[in-house]
Design a protein around this nucleic acid. Sequence first.
RNA 1: GCGCGUUUAGCUCAGUUGGUAGAGCAGCUCGUUUACACCGAGAAGGUCGGGAGUUCAAGUCUCUCAACGCGCACCA
Length: 762
Amino acid sequence: MLQFLLSMAELPEKFTKPYDSTSVEDSIYSLWEKSGYFNPDTCASDGVCEPDADPFSIVLPPPNVTGTLHTGHSLMLAIQDTMVRFNRMQGKKTLWLPGTDHAAISTENVIVKQLTKEKTSKFKIGRKAFMERVNAFAQESHDTIVSQTKKMGASLDWSREAFTLDEPRQRAVYTAFEQMYNDGLIYRGDRIVNWDPKGQTTVSDDEVNHEERDAKMYTFKYSADFPFAIATTRPETKLGDTAVAVNPNDERYKQYIGQEFSFNFAGADVTVTVIGDEHVDAEFGTGALGVTPAHSQTDWDIAQRHSLPSKQVINEYAKMMVGMDGVVGEKTENARTAVVAWLESEGLMEKIEDIKQNISLSERTKAIIEPLPKTQWWIDVNKPIEAREGKTLKELMLDAVRSGDVGILPDRFEKTYFNWIENLRDWNISRQIWYGHRVPVWYHDTCQKIEEVENNKIKSFSLEPIVGLFPPKGDKEDQFGCPHCQATDLPLEHFSQDEDTLDTWFSSGLWTFSTLGWPDETDDLKTFHPTSVLETGHDIIFFWVARMILMSTYLLGEVPFKTVYMHGMVLDKNGKKMSKSNPETAIDPLESIEKFGTDALRMAMLVGVGPGQNVALGDDKIKAYRKFSNKIWNATRFVIENAGDIDLNTKPEIKPEHQEFINQWETLIAEITGEMNEYKFYLVAEKLYHFFWHTFADIIIEECKKDLNDSSQYTLSYLLVQQIKSLHPFMPFITEEIWQSLPDNLKAGERDILMVANWPKS
RNA sequence: GCGCGUUUAGCUCAGUUGGUAGAGCAGCUCGUUUACACCGAGAAGGUCGGGAGUUCAAGUCUCUCAACGCGCACCA
């Protein structure tokens, strides 16, 4: 009885109440942060890991600075933090590097919308004022995101935090651009681009989504004199036709190939040449295709093959540039109605059919994409690169995965990856927006002969522009030299920088090494690159994963990461995508943390969720792991109370039935250590949960409490401490809180912060 | 159109190289308040999407069909 009272006195007061996550999480996080152990350098200098220990590094996929954290972010943070904590406890030199993404179009769009509401626009307030607005918003979002990230318990090294648009990253972007330009991989060219009339910018092929809609197929003749009919879904574009393509073997039209026809079409003078092209399907429509090079990718390709002229009839606002009254100046949809009415009144229309058609939408603005010819900056993915054994960017990207240097989990995504690369076309990297890295190209107006200027923008020039970090310096600080005419000391006004900004994924592609100090050869770069794992959502495999492999293999000659671990989407409890339209099932991570604790949320997202798998998340599931937190809490209470005096450094004689329990655990820890290294967290979390509850609590504690002696007490304390350690990567807060309350004799010489204790050895 | 994936208990999912089906949650019955009601014990619940094949043996391998989901491409 005396013994009992003494033990009771040692039990911290807090264990007499259920576990209260809200009262401990913030202080635990600041304990970690103050320790400095998020930073691998501190770990090395304090002996947490050997200075030359194997590195383990992850760069955090930078959240967009467009708002707040959602469940997708929580999932990514939970998985990565688990990996990071596990590796840190294994004594690796562990770096998890945080940052945020400026997310060019998305962020710019937020402000553009605000301005529209305020009845003004970015053009009215000007580039400078606009940028100030965007930067203020980005800063605000950044701060919110950082504080929410800390709530998840993420053990990120904040001292190395990066932003895709900060100064060091700009240097990386400009250096990369310059090198690609000098290698002939970046070029300026006229092409059909995906034009977003709402965002007033181009977007890349990957930023275009397709949606099936009802449409009509119109079959008609251009004019009464024209010998046959064509079919199209967009009659208004026919004002820009320059040819009619037929299959060269099509008996119906063979005789017309090579003939030229001129006529007036809905108020526009049109001249078309009939050409034969193998790509035309004789079975489709009438077998004759009106070729509109300026407003269709396929037609542009045909025009290239046959050297046809191109005639733009739709402008950047998706309005008609030519045509009769009711057509010219109208939006394309209105113009279509007018052209159809005209065709009918002229008796040219032969047939109107209802069809399903996939239309192209801009991912960010949801505007219908208007294909337009534009001068843009491109990355050539098919040009052999001397410095890389004559391989093309496409080949570099394929080889990285094919060789196994990069492994993708789950492996089925490797097929998706190959499929995408094989169909890859040149990458359009310039955007006509303001928020982002300005294209690092300067045009020198005193030396260069500018041939064409339109809207104050240089359209063409006779000498190469100056590409690179900054305009070449002259003798004085604010004066610059021109490499072409050798003039020096020219004031900055003589140079004008390209107006466009770069696709946000250009800077994201550099992320694994721009964050480590590239282009300088820093220690970080040598130690932590290639990074160990990239953990991200499978929806950005092309946008990001592929671009990182492109940039890293080209610029550094090594892969950016060895393993890609893709997580799925977080769905609501009904298996539906969480969205603002049904808020009743959507989970707000901050709310869940408040209600059930971060550890419970993390477990709910980890248990049973393999790579690539979607997580159906409802309150019930999170609640179940709050119960688990409490179970751990109470079992700890029992062990401290009844076996807390045991010194774990001196192992007493263990009875066979207790040794059997220890053996069971040691078998388990060997098994799960292996599984952790194979990224099977979903299995490990479940096994730990199960062992703790249904073996340790239900059986072992029940057995041991019958007879508390050295053997049973040692067994209890030993198994508790082992499990607290192995649960730490999954449930960092409660395990650390327990560790902080554990008597020293149970810590067995380990450090006083669990985060840097040793992972149990089997 | 091409490709990928999923289909196992009411729900969410495990099931490793083929050897008589498992867990969590929910529900049901009973119990317990000196670690824990954010608890314990117990029972119930499945012709493993359909069909065919290989095999002594198939949830697992092969083929085929179907439903659902996802990705890519797209024809004017």
